[in-house]
Amino acid sequence: MSGSGDSNGRKVGSLRELPQSIAPAHDLWPAIESRLPAVTPERSPTEQVGPRHRRAARLRWLAAAAMVACLATGVWIGRSLLPGGATPTAPVAAAAPPAGSGLALTAFDRTYVSDPRYERQRAALMHEVQERLAALPPPARAKVSASLAAIEKAKQDLEGELGHDPGNALLQELLINTYQDEMRVLTDVHEASDAGRGI
């Protein structure tokens, strides 16, 4: 066998004394490197944390934060503002748009979100809520405003991302969930005020 190099008459008494390392006759790196551009190291699934994944995680967190803010506000309104401390409507029902609007929230539909009827109704509800918010005690007003701000921030970020990646189903779902969250807060505030507890 050629290439062992270390064989100039040296004698050994054990196979372990044979050289483990043998240098090739020439440098193989240039040939290896020339084949590397065609391939890229593959990440194991647990290590796939590229910018895309980090961005998706951040957006999920934002949407989750919006949902938490919404739920927290709903619970707080139910406990502190409504008669008997009960939430007047189930969360899902509260999330639905007002009856007669002909809008469905079961699946994402970008047209629905930007539908002028929805926008008008939302604007009217928001205007009404802003007026009633002004009548709220400062702590209550701060809590609801913070929830709405968190939801608005999540919506803006998600819409921005959807601008870059309009076909992303995850972003679409997160956005519709965030719209539902916003509607839930607005409806809760509206119904709490109707219950005549100082709003």
Binding site: M1, S4, S7, R10, K11, V12, G13, S14, L15
Partner: peptide
């Protein structure tokens, strides 16, 4: 696992025998 030789042998001779 210890593969010792009763008498030391030249490296090339062992390599050839292994080959």
């Amino acid at each position: 696992a210890e593969w010792t030789l009763e008498t030391p042998v030249e490296v090339q001779e062992i390599e050839d025998a292994i080959g």
